[in-house]
Simulated assay, not measured.
Amino acid sequence: MYTGLQHLHSGIAYLALAALVLVIIYALIGSLSGREFTEKDRKIAMIAFIISHIQLLVGLILYFVSPVGFSLLTAGGAMSDSAARLTALEHPLINILAIVIISVGYIRSKKISLSRGKFRSIYMMYAIGFVLILSRIPWANWLN
């Protein structure tokens, strides 16, 4: 089960990162071109929103069943080792923050009346979330 969750978490990460990039570019183009924000635009933004939340859910499950997640944090000594600190604290904490920021961007876009503001809310908040996610990916583990 643990290995399957690891593979699922890694696989969905590719989808989530690709969806975020596509939505950021799509919303930026929509904002710069001055076109009207439509239901199609909302649904496209919702795709990255949903995939990122599924990634968070799988990650949280993995965090509590993994021997290098929450158990590493409670065992002590994780703060002195940078790799353990990344896995046990920084990766989950920053990624939760990134998903919250993405959520704020999506929810805020629904409340704004101007199309340019809707696009701007999506591309700015999604881009901040995207950068935060990239900053805390355990690249040494992910690329192997």
Results as ranks from 00 to 15, higher is better:
Leu89Met: 14
Tyr123Val: 07
Met79Val: 06
Ala18Lys: 03
Ile61Asn: 02
Lys43Asn: 04
Gly34His: 08
Ile122Tyr: 05
Ala16Phe: 04
Lys40His: 10
His91Phe: 04
Asp41His: 03
Ala16Ser: 15
Thr38Tyr: 01
Tyr106Asp: 01
Tyr26Ser: 06
Val68Glu: 13
Asn141His: 15
Arg108Gln: 10
Gly4Asn: 12
Leu17Phe: 14
Gly69Ala: 09
Arg35Pro: 03
Ala83Asp: 15
Leu32Phe: 10
Arg120Gly: 04
Pro67Asp: 11
Ser82Asp: 08
Asp41Arg: 03
Tyr63Asn: 04
Ala75Thr: 12
Leu60Arg: 12
Val23Ser: 02
Ile137Cys: 12
Lys111Tyr: 01
Gly129Trp: 05
Ser80Lys: 14
Leu62Ile: 09
Leu28Arg: 09
Asp81Ala: 06
Pro67Thr: 10
Ala13Lys: 14
Ile101Glu: 04
Ile128Glu: 02
Ala140Trp: 13
Asn144Leu: 15
Thr38Glu: 00
Gly76Glu: 13
Ile99Cys: 13
Tyr123Ala: 08
Leu32Trp: 07
Val65Trp: 00
Ser103Val: 09
Val65Phe: 01
Leu56Thr: 04
Ala84Asp: 03
Ile99Trp: 14
Ser31Gln: 13
Phe37Asn: 03
Leu57Cys: 09
Arg42Cys: 00
Gly77Tyr: 10
Leu89Phe: 14
Lys118Phe: 12
Ile51Lys: 03
Ser113Ile: 13
Leu132Phe: 06
Ile54His: 02
Thr74Gly: 05
Arg85Val: 06
His9Ile: 02
Gly76Phe: 12
His53Ile: 05
Leu20Gln: 13
Ile96Leu: 08
Lys118Thr: 04
Thr3Asn: 07
Ala78Trp: 15
Ala16Lys: 02
Ser33Glu: 13
Ile29Ser: 07
Ser115Lys: 03
Leu15Thr: 10
Ser82Phe: 09
Leu17Thr: 15
Pro67Trp: 07
Ile94Arg: 09
Ser82Thr: 15
Ala98Trp: 03
Pro92Gln: 13
